[in-house]
Each structure stands twice: as structure tokens, then as C-alpha cells.
Simulated scan of single mutants.
Amino acid sequence: MLKNSWIAIFALKLMLAAPSEAQEPVLDYSASLAAYNAGDYRTALNNWHSLAEQGHPASQCSLGYAYEHGFGVPQDYSEAIRWYKAAADKGDARAQAFLGQMYEKGLGAPQDYMEAIRWYTVAAKQSHGWSQSKLGEIYRRGQGVPKDFVSAHMWFNIASAVGDPMASFRRAELKKSMTLVQVAEAKARARVCMSSGYDDCKKPHLRSR
């Protein structure tokens, strides 16, 4: 694999993976990421292994991503799921999102849309825009759930509001297949969902006319 291509891909993914100030050891993780982007993969991966074994979720997520794509290690979907799961259980939204995608695609585990939805939803409730867009796509396509354009539009609305770059485009495309009443309902549900801290995202909020 060409060095520059997978540095760029991995660095782009990891821009969303910066640990919070409360996580430790932040400096070791940041130094490892810098080493990885500089091409010193052995140092970075060795450090991530060490930090991951200590329970550092950002390192666990990064290690899972490396195993998923074979970046610096042999590609191993089962190992990727193991590390994603470890980080996801600690509340790491990126790991939850990546784990959802593994189940959606059937990588390292049988394809399971309901398990994918579960993990995307957990991440979405942490305002993870990519996961919110993934939920929109799942409802748009009817994967594991009945096809539901209103729910799909709602999640695209929410993802757009938190800054997901593709959500607005997907929402605009979906709108072409919806009635004005459906679009209004989706917008109303998005407002309620966000104002409730993602606790109330399923009930209709427009009265029949």
C-alpha cells in the first residue's frame, strides 16, 4: 500500500479521534499520532498497543482502525472489532460509529443491521454527526427497519446541524421523494430530538390537520 495514501486516510479519520482533556495519558497518545503521521508506524503502533492495554479508549479506537484497514499491521477484522468494542464500551463515539459500520457491512462478524443501529444510535446521542447521517441512510434504505423517510430526514437534519459535511446534500436528495407534510414532521421531530438531548426522537410532534 502506498505510504502517502494511507497516511492521509488514517489522519483524516483520526482528526475526529482526539481524546478529551480528561483522558490520560493524552500526551503519549498525541505523540503516537504524530509519530504515525510522520511515518514512524512501529513507534506509533507499539505505543497504541501499550496504551490500549492500559484501557485508553482513543488508543483502542486507533488500534481498531489500524487492524480494520491493515495499516501497519496485518488486516484483521476480528481484532478490529475487539479493540473498537473495548473503546465503545468506554463511551468513545468514534469507536461506537466504527463498530456500527463493522456490523452494517458484516466485517469480522455476521451482518447485523440491528446491532449496527444500536451502536450508531449510541454515538448519535453524543452528537456524532457521521453516526447521525448513517442512521439517516439506514432509515432511507430500510436496512433492518421499515423504510422511513421522515426518520431519515430527521437524522440528516440533526447531522447537518452538528456539522456533518454530507448531511445537507443527502437531506436535499431525500426531500425530492417526500411530501411537504413529511418534511415538516421531520423538521419538528429533529427540533424535539435535539432539545431533549436525544431522549425524544421517535414520537410524532405535529397534529393532524
Score class of each variant (00 low, 15 high):
residue 154 M to W: 02
residue 116 A to W: 05
residue 141 R to M: 15
residue 74 P to E: 07
residue 160 S to T: 15
residue 135 L to M: 05
residue 15 M to R: 15
residue 107 L to H: 11
residue 60 Q to P: 04
residue 197 G to A: 14
residue 28 D to T: 02
residue 18 A to H: 13
residue 93 A to W: 07
residue 165 P to Y: 08
residue 163 G to V: 00
residue 75 Q to M: 06
residue 65 Y to V: 09
residue 16 L to Q: 13
residue 152 A to H: 10
residue 18 A to M: 14
residue 117 I to W: 02
residue 23 Q to R: 00
residue 18 A to F: 10
residue 142 G to D: 05
residue 140 R to S: 15
residue 92 D to I: 01
residue 201 C to R: 01
residue 80 A to N: 01
residue 96 Q to K: 10
residue 185 E to N: 09
residue 82 R to N: 12
residue 154 M to I: 01
residue 18 A to C: 05
residue 26 V to P: 01
residue 131 S to F: 06
residue 205 H to T: 11
residue 207 R to W: 12
residue 29 Y to R: 01
residue 99 L to W: 08
residue 139 Y to M: 05
residue 203 K to H: 12
residue 176 K to G: 09
residue 48 W to N: 00
residue 193 C to W: 04
residue 157 N to Q: 13
residue 175 K to M: 15
residue 161 A to Y: 11
residue 50 S to M: 03
residue 191 R to K: 13
residue 4 N to C: 12
residue 134 K to P: 03
residue 144 G to V: 02
residue 180 L to T: 15
residue 36 Y to R: 03
residue 130 W to F: 13
residue 102 M to Q: 07
residue 171 R to F: 05
residue 85 K to G: 11
residue 194 M to Y: 07
residue 191 R to Q: 14
residue 34 A to N: 05
residue 115 E to H: 03
residue 36 Y to H: 04
residue 187 K to E: 15
residue 60 Q to R: 03
residue 56 H to T: 00
residue 31 A to N: 08
residue 87 A to Q: 04
residue 76 D to Y: 02
residue 50 S to W: 06
residue 47 N to W: 02
residue 71 F to R: 15
residue 105 K to I: 00
residue 47 N to S: 14
residue 181 V to M: 11
residue 22 A to G: 05
residue 64 G to E: 08
residue 34 A to H: 03
residue 72 G to R: 03
residue 142 G to L: 04
residue 164 D to M: 00
residue 195 S to Q: 12
residue 46 N to G: 03
residue 22 A to V: 00
residue 203 K to W: 06
residue 73 V to K: 05
residue 97 A to C: 15
residue 41 Y to W: 14
residue 139 Y to T: 06
residue 88 A to W: 02
residue 63 L to K: 12
residue 69 H to G: 07
residue 111 Q to G: 06
residue 67 Y to E: 02
residue 176 K to R: 15
residue 19 P to K: 00
residue 97 A to W: 13
residue 55 G to E: 00
residue 32 S to P: 01
residue 70 G to T: 09
residue 12 L to Y: 15
residue 112 D to I: 03
residue 164 D to R: 06
residue 191 R to P: 06
residue 91 G to E: 07
residue 29 Y to I: 01
residue 125 K to I: 05
residue 4 N to W: 10
residue 163 G to Y: 05
residue 165 P to G: 08
residue 108 G to N: 07
residue 172 A to N: 08
residue 163 G to H: 03
residue 113 Y to V: 07
residue 52 A to T: 00
residue 195 S to N: 11
residue 126 Q to C: 06
residue 196 S to L: 06
residue 181 V to L: 14
residue 2 L to G: 11
residue 70 G to C: 06
residue 121 T to A: 04
residue 165 P to L: 01
residue 66 A to T: 04
residue 22 A to P: 00
residue 142 G to T: 01
residue 180 L to S: 13
residue 122 V to P: 03
residue 82 R to W: 08
residue 187 K to T: 10
residue 71 F to A: 12
residue 43 T to L: 10
residue 77 Y to N: 11
residue 142 G to H: 09
residue 133 S to R: 10
residue 137 E to G: 12
residue 145 V to Y: 06
residue 101 Q to R: 14
residue 71 F to P: 05
residue 58 A to L: 03
residue 143 Q to D: 13
residue 13 K to S: 15
residue 36 Y to N: 01
residue 70 G to L: 08
